[in-house]
Write a protein that binds this DNA or RNA. Structure first.
Lengths: 187, 187
DNA sequence: GAAATCATTTGCCTTATGGCAAAAAGTGTT
DNA sequence: AACACTTTTTGCCATAAGGCAAATGATTTC
C-alpha cells in the first residue's frame, strides 16, 4: 500500500488526511495467473494498481490471432480513464499471480470530487503512461526482430522470464518460433 | 475558427462568453511545407490546432534513419500536454502547407484558470488522441506490410496522396521501395 | 512417478521484405 | 522547352522471418 502512495506522490502533493481517504477506498485483491481482470465486451470502470505480478492487455485481430498490446508490471496503474461507459475491446489478463489494489469507479469519482488536485495527478499519470507506451511502440516499428526483442528486454526486464513466449512474440509482432531462434542467438 | 470551436464542443459544453475568450487567445498562422513547427531539442509549449494541411511528428533512430511517428491532418490538436519544460525529442514538421491556430502556453494556462471545466475538456481530447494512436500502432504490429498500408489508408485517407512516400514507409516500418511495390499490387 | 498436457526449440523449405542502384516519372525554374 | 532536382518505380539478388510439423523439454494431474 505504501508503494501506491509513494507512486501517487511522485505526481503531486497530498496531505495526511487525503492520503488516508485514498487508502480507505482501496481494496486489495488477488488475481490468479491466467484469470481475466477485465473481459472484452464488458464494462471496465474500476481502477487497479499492481502491487505484485504482471498483467497484460490483449485483443484478437481479424485472423483470430491473439495479440498482446501491452504488459504492466509492479507499480503500474490500470484504468480506462475515459470511455467509462463503453464495453472494452480488449482483455486484461493476469500473466502471473497478481496482488492488486482496486478502486471502484464510484469511490474513484468520490476522490475526484473531494481531493483538490486529484484529477490533475491522475491525468498526469495516465498521460505519461500513454506517451511512454506510444513511444515504445513507435520505436519498435523501424527495427528488425532482434533489436525489437532487445528493446523489449530493456523496457521490461522483469517480464521476459515470467511470461509465455507467445505473449512476447505477439507483442513484438513476430512468431513464437522466430522469437525462440532470436533468443538462442543472443545467448 | 468555427471548426476549432466545433471540435472543442464535442468534448464538453461552453457558453458564449467562454468561447469568445478562447477565440480571443488564438492566433492564426501559416506554416509552409517542410518547415518545422517544433524542432527536437527545443521547448514546445504552445498548443496548435490544424485548420488546414498535414503535420507529422518524426524522430531519428540510432541508425540515423528518419522515422515518422505520427501524422496529423485537419482538425487535430497538437501539444505537449505534460513535459512542458523538457526539450522535445522529436520534430513536428509541415508536410503540406498548413494553416494553424496557435495558443501560447501563457494564454492556454490562463484559459485553464478562467474556464471551469477547460482542463477536463482538454484532458479528454489528449487522452482520446493518445489512445487512438496507441491502438493504431498496436494494430500495425501484427500485420504484414500490405495490410499495414491498407490500415493506414483507412485511418488517413486524406494523407496518403499528399505526402512523400518515404514518410509513410517509415511510419509503417517498411522501406520506400517495398511500399512502392505494395502500392502497385493494390492497383 | 507415469501419463497427459502445454510450452519451447528445431529442421526444412517458402516467401516477404530489404539493399543497392539504375531507370523512369514528376516538379519546379529559367 | 530544356535543365536540374526530387521522388517513385523497377530489377536483381540476398536475407530475415514465416509456416508447418516433429522433437524436445517443462509442468500439472491423478
Amino acid at each position: 500500500m505504501e508503494k501506491f502512495i509513494e507512486y501517487i506522490l511522485r505526481f503531486g502533493n497530498l496531505n495526511k488526511q487525503q492520503i488516508e481517504l485514498i487508502t480507505s477506498k482501496a481494496t486489495e485483491t488477488e488475481l490468479r495467473k491466467d484469470k481475466y481482470f477485465v473481459e472484452a465486451g464488458k464494462i471496465f470502470s474500476q481502477v487497479a494498481f499492481i502491487l505484485e505480478g504482471i498483467l497484460r492487455i490483449c485483443f484478437y485481430n481479424n485472423k483470430g490471432e491473439e495479440i498482446t498490446k501491452y504488459f504492466g508490471d509492479e507499480n503500474h496503474l490500470f484504468a480506462n480513464p475515459y470511455n467509462i461507459h463503453e464495453p472494452m475491446a480488449e482483455y486484461i489478463q493476469a500473466v502471473t499471480d497478481c496482488r492488486l489494489l482496486v478502486f471502484s469507479r464510484k469511490d474513484w469519482d468520490e476522490l475526484s470530487n473531494t481531493i483538490v488536485g486529484w484529477d490533475s495527478i491522475v491525468n498526469k499519470i495516465f498521460q505519461k503512461a500513454l506517451m511512454e507506451k506510444m513511444d515504445r511502440r513507435s520505436a519498435l516499428v523501424s527495427e528488425d526482430a532482434t533489436t525489437r526483442y532487445l528493446m523489449f528486454l530493456e523496457k521490461f526486464p522483469t517480464v521476459a522470464n515470467r511470461v509465455p513466449l507467445s505473449y512476447i512474440a505477439s507483442y513484438l509482432g513476430i512468431t513464437q518460433s522466430s522469437l525462440s531462434r532470436i533468443r538462442k542467438n543472443i545467448r
